[in-house]
Simulated scan of single mutants.
Amino acid sequence: MAGKTTRQCLSWVLLSLLAINLALTAGCAGKPATARYSASSVGSSCYAKALPTAGEGGLAWGSTLSMARQKSLDNCIRYAGRSGGTPNTCQVVLSECKH
């Protein structure tokens, strides 16, 4: 008789944990996704985008326009090389500072 009570108690505990887990998961499901790189751009007011003729380009933020341009070129070279593109053709196509 004691074994049956223990099993019932264990099943209630497991069901309760499952219900709590589902409630917490459902609560987080409605939140919008945030970009992974948003924290790195806090305080940076300038951005630049560089693109190669083939492959992936690079977008970067910086505190000055020249810093953003250099970072975007570095990112373009890195990403174009990884994506099978042409890293030696990277050029900054857009750069500006927010006011």
Rank of each mutant, 00 (worst) to 15 (best):
A2W: 01
A2F: 05
G3H: 04
K4R: 08
K4S: 07
T5E: 03
T6A: 09
T6K: 06
R7N: 07
R7Y: 12
R7G: 07
R7K: 11
Q8K: 06
Q8I: 14
C9N: 09
S11A: 11
W12M: 14
W12E: 09
V13W: 02
L14K: 06
L15F: 10
L17E: 11
L18D: 00
A19F: 02
A19C: 06
I20W: 13
I20T: 13
L22Q: 02
L22N: 03
A23G: 15
A23L: 15
L24K: 06
L24A: 14
L24Y: 07
A26Q: 14
A26E: 11
G27L: 11
G27F: 12
G27P: 12
C28H: 15
A29C: 13
A29Y: 09
G30V: 08
K31G: 08
K31F: 11
P32Q: 11
P32H: 05
P32F: 03
P32G: 06
A33W: 07
A33P: 05
T34K: 00
R36S: 14
Y37D: 14
Y37M: 10
Y37R: 12
S38F: 05
S38A: 10
S41Y: 06
S41R: 02
S41C: 03
G43I: 03
G43D: 02
S44D: 13
S44H: 06
S44K: 10
S45R: 06
S45Q: 11
C46T: 10
Y47L: 14
K49L: 10
K49G: 09
A50S: 08
P52R: 07
P52S: 08
T53C: 09
T53I: 15
T53L: 10
T53W: 13
A54V: 02
G55C: 04
G55M: 01
G57K: 11
G58P: 00
G58D: 00
L59Y: 09
L59P: 07
L59V: 12
A60H: 07
A60R: 05
W61D: 04
G62P: 14
G62C: 13
G62W: 12
S63K: 14
T64V: 03
T64H: 09
L65W: 05
L65Q: 05
L65C: 08
L65A: 02
S66A: 12
M67G: 04
M67H: 06
M67L: 13
A68E: 11
R69W: 00
Q70A: 07
Q70E: 09
Q70T: 15
K71S: 10
S72L: 04
D74P: 00
D74A: 14
D74S: 03
N75V: 02
N75Q: 09
N75F: 00
N75P: 01
C76Q: 00
I77S: 10
R78K: 01
Y79M: 11
A80N: 13
A80I: 15
G81D: 01
R82E: 12
R82P: 02
S83T: 13
G84V: 03
G85A: 08
G85K: 13
T86N: 01
P87R: 03
T89I: 06
T89K: 01
C90A: 01
V92G: 02
V92N: 01
V92M: 00
L94H: 10
L94R: 09
L94E: 15
E96S: 15
E96G: 15
C97P: 09
K98V: 05
